[in-house]
Every structure is written in C-alpha cells, then in structure tokens.
C-alpha cells in the first residue's frame, strides 16, 4: 500500500457516499473512466476489491466497508500535515470537524466555539448535527467527525468521554399567563398543551420519562420541525415548552416565564472523542471545554421575564 494518494481516497469515499460510480464522478468533477481507473489502482494497492459493481450502481464490499473510516482518517491526516506548517505563529490551524445535537449546538457548543475562535482564528470549524445523541460515537468511529458533544450517558466503546456540566431542563410558559408555581411541581403539568419538536431528541425523551415517572402526560398540540420556532411560539402564547441551559435564560429575557421543575430534571453532557486521534485544533478545543469557565454552564434558577 505504498502509493495511495489523496485523489484515490477522495474518489473512493465519493463512491461510498453516492452509491454509484457515475454520481461520484459528477460530484468529483471528473470523468467516470478516470474515477474508475483511480479506484482500480487503489484496489490493487490494497490487494482487495473495495467496491462491487451492481445493477443500480456500486456497493461496498466487506473490505470496502472496513476501509471507509481508514480512508477518512488518512485524508484527515494528509490534511493535517498541511496544517502544521501553514499555521500562523505556530498555533493550531486547519480544520476541526465537530458533531453535536440540535439542543447542545445552541448551548454549550456555540459559546464554546466563540471562545475557541477568539483564541484560534486560524482554525476552520465544521459543525455537523445529528438528531440522536446515540449516533455521535458512530460518527467519531467512522471518521466523519473528530469531536462530539452529546448528552450522557453514551454507549461508547473505545471512546473517551469527558463529562462537562449539566443542563437543567426548565419549563417555559408564555408571558401574561397566571404565574405558574415556583418551583413547578411536575404534576401541575398534567394535560398541559405543549410545543414540541418533531423527532427523537434525547431532550424530548428525558422530559417524557421524567413526567411519566410521576404519572403525567403532556399533550403536544403544536409540533414543529424547526427548533428555532419554539421560543417564538411560546412567547406568542401558543403553548408551553421545555428548554435547557442558556436558551431558557434567553427566553426569560424575552418575557417568557421560566420555572425549575420539582423534582428537577438535570442532564449531564460531555465531550467525546477517539483517543490518539485528536488534531492540535481538537486538543485545543477539548482543553478549552474542560477548563473552568467563569460564565458557568449549569442552568440557573427560575426566572420571570
């Protein structure tokens, strides 16, 4: 496997992602014969067929499946060799691939990236978002991201988990309603009309389980695909909802009534990564995340807007 080059790796991953030589060639901006030839050379170098041509395109062989995360890692390491020299004044440069969930993307990921970019302007950060916390370790293992941020616990073999802090999940009500009790007994929520986000977010499951443990069921009367719509809907009086961390505080700042639950609902989140694979940029981000932060991450107490 001596002369594997960047192009062959990129073409192979394109075929893996598109499921067809033709689509991969279009995506790569080359002719299909060129791509096919590069793929053939790669297969000869590795001594195994990576791709099986079938009626509808191309599928990965078992060897191809095994090679995918390695191809991504090789490309990443190739890219990294460029970062070492290219960085200004010796600080980390290059790219950082992060994966997180929609809830954690807003808090703590965004503030963390703000601080990180201030310190490391040479690093370009790419954030991928997945609906399910459980998918985060898989995305690290197959090389699609370097660092993940997810609610814990996570089922993760061979992955380092650095617990960071907790979110407190708060109940959020429209302004102008009679002031809900503070703290808010969970049973008070029975039959309440809520605004919910479609999908299988961990937050939704956590809230559901927490309430169900007390015999309480919610009615989701407004369900939206876009998380960004929740706070405006609550403020507009469409119903109550549940928010975590800074988002709850921002909603309070805009006039919503935010209440801590009784019993409280808290969920720990953390950073995850594959040991031994961190780039200098990723190491810097991890260091920043686990360092104490004067702002604090834990959601504070109840607020009224």
């Amino acid at each position: 496997m001596r002369s594997v080059n960047r192009q062959q790796l990129e073409y192979f991953l394109a075929v893996a992602e598109h499921g067809s030589l033709g689509h991969a060639a279009v995506a790569a901006g080359v002719s299909q014969p060129s791509l096919s030839q590069a793929l053939g050379t790669l297969e000869k170098e590795l001594g195994a067929a990576l791709v099986r041509r079938v009626r509808r395109g191309a599928v990965l062989t078992p060897a191809g499946h095994a090679f995918v995360p390695h191809a991504r890692l090789l490309l990443r390491e190739l890219r990294r060799t460029g970062e070492v020299i290219g960085g200004p004044d010796g600080r980390p440069a290059g790219e950082l691939d992060l994966v997180t969930t929609p809830v954690l993307a807003v808090d703590p990921c965004a503030p963390l990236l703000g601080r990180f970019r201030g310190l490391h302007p040479g690093v370009r950060v790419r954030v991928q978002v997945t609906d399910r916390d459980a998918e985060v370790p898989g995305m690290l293992a197959d090389g699609r991201a370097e660092v993940g941020l997810a609610y814990l616990p996570l089922d993760a073999d061979g992955i380092v988990v650095r617990a960071l802090a907790e979110h407190e999940i708060m109940a959020v009500f429209p302004p102008g309603e009679p002031s809900p009790p503070d703290p808010l007994p969970v049973r008070w929520l029975a039959g309440r009309e809520t605004v919910g986000v479609t999908g299988h977010s961990r937050q939704r499951a956590l809230v559901g389980d927490h309430l169900a443990a007390h015999g309480v069921r919610l009615r989701v009367t407004v369900e939206v695909a876009h998380r960004e719509m929740v706070v405006p809907l609550v403020l507009a009086g469409a119903g109550m909802s549940f928010l975590a961390g800074k988002v709850a505080r921002w909603a309070a700042g805009q006039g919503a009534r935010v209440r801590r639950l009784d019993p409280p609902l808290r969920q720990r989140y953390g950073l995850v990564y594959v040991p031994g694979r961190l780039s200098p940029a990723a190491r810097a981000l991890t260091g920043l995340a686990v360092a104490p932060d004067d702002g604090g991450h834990v959601g504070g107490g109840s607020h009224d807007g």
């Binding site: 496997m1 001596r2 002369s3 594997v4 080059n5 960047r6 192009q7 062959q8 090789l74 190739l78 890219r79 060799t81 460029g82 970062e83 020299i85 290219g86």
Partner: peptide
C-alpha cells in the same frame, strides 16, 4: 500548505 499528495 499541504505538503504531501500521497503516502509515498
């Protein structure tokens, strides 16, 4: 800034 085209 990317020194190597391939592994060789």
């Amino acid at each position: 800034g990317a020194p190597f085209t391939g592994l060789r």
